[in-house]
Nucleic acid binder design. Sequence first.
RNA 1: GGUCUCGUGGCCGAGCGGUUAGGCACCGGUCUGCAAAACCGUCUACUCCGGUUCGAAUCCGGACGAGACCUCCA
Length: 489
Amino acid sequence: MSTAIDLTIYNSLTGEKEKFEPIHAGKVGMYVCGPTLYSEPHMGNMRTFINFDLIYRYLLKLGLQVKYVRNITDAGHITNSAGEAVDSIGKVAKLEQVQSLEIVYKYNTKFQELQRIYNLLSPTIEPTATAHIQEQIEHIEQIIANGFGYVVNGSVYFDVRAYSEQFEYGILSGRKVDELAEETRALHAQEEKRFFADFALWKKANPDDMQIWRSPWGDGNPGWHIECTAMSTKYLGAQFDIHGGGMDLKFPHHEDEIAQNCGSLGCNPARYWMHANMLNVNGQKMSKSLGNYFLPKEIVEGTTTIFDKPYSPAVIRFCMMQAHYRSTLDLSADSLNAAEKGFTRLGDALLLLPTITASETSSMDVSALVQSFYKAMNDDFNAPMLIAALFEGVKYINALAENKATISATDLAVLTAEFHSFIGDVLGLHIAKATSDDALNATMELVLAMRKKAREEKDWTTSDQIRDKLQAAGIVVKDGKDGASWSVK
RNA sequence: GGUCUCGUGGCCGAGCGGUUAGGCACCGGUCUGCAAAACCGUCUACUCCGGUUCGAAUCCGGACGAGACCUCCA
């Protein structure tokens, strides 16, 4: 279809929508910050991954050859609000009295399962931090050699002041180094740093650390940001096309990634920085520390206390797709119920397509409709606009089914192909077809034939009894113009 | 306190200078033995106050409100 790439992407780096031009024509390198495996990812985490899955899917739809790298953080010391280096995985491991790797393995298994449930395409590579300690060390050595890092007592820090003389620290987040000084609340335990804004590249091992690696500076652990620099460089090169992640990673994580990449290789790692917005609960960001989160599995199984019924992964995905990736989204029972009905309507229309017969001409400009699908997604992956356009198609399809509109054979083929493609391949929504259970199909055929006979004889008691008993068994009978149809609830 | 984002009809949520977003709900209709479902139609909003403009939800200023980040976070 639309072969020319006419994609616009909002670049967090410039704060503007820019025409997307890949470094290598026809190819895209994309890096997205993945989960830290010290707990099960919650629904908010999933929204980010679902959004980047959408982006990945659309890039593929455009015929681009995408190398999508999403890391798995299975080691690393982050710095908490008190300025202390913390190994969050080790912390959980200690609590549960197991080894770090057991924690990582446990939650990775869950994460992989969630990816299947929510129909996320697998990234091209999912590298882990622990498998790239050597690369991280090499980056740190280069940063030191370039004069942007210093060693103190077995730890290595990034020298923000030295860096600021040649590069702009704060280019992504809009922060100014001078202002940061006054803004930052008083921190403890950072007497090793030369400057308050310096951050750890390598942290000397504590006696009770569960995971320790050798380095030129002694035994220790990598800092929180360096793994992404090491892995993105290794798999995508010094500079690639798109770097994504959650909005909350903008500072300090992505800012520091830029600093490390510039400090080591002299360039910003990515041309386009993309940030997905947060999932809110009652107007507040869903987060572990606030405790206002629910798990992606709970909502599918109907075991969260927030919702009184389960929702299918496709409905949740659809609900999320109705909001733009850069907007916050409040997931509520109301919005999910609305999404459920809308999704059914969309799916029904899709299933109606094979029953449509072609005419000489089309009463609608199908080409324009299909172009509107592309136009929506080309505008910074505007999925809500795409869905609105799809519903234009739904109206048309319904009219066709009732012989109130016409479509040519060529247009029907195009519409069918693109409808399936945009719903299935791009939005990643799986439309359930009628059951493939032959035994059930045959049984239902018999039952409905019996009911039809009863109805013809105006035996409403039998007819209604069949309908009600089936409903109780979870099968809904719908009486249409051309006889009854059924579906499993 | 600093930096930034946002305030759209009953709800969710696009649009970001002039045209109906869309979905859900409501209401009306078609269909129907009844019901459900399905389909069609209707409703018509931009926090407030100024300004720019022929024209503003959309741009500028201010007020009020909400949220994010400021070394835990997707």
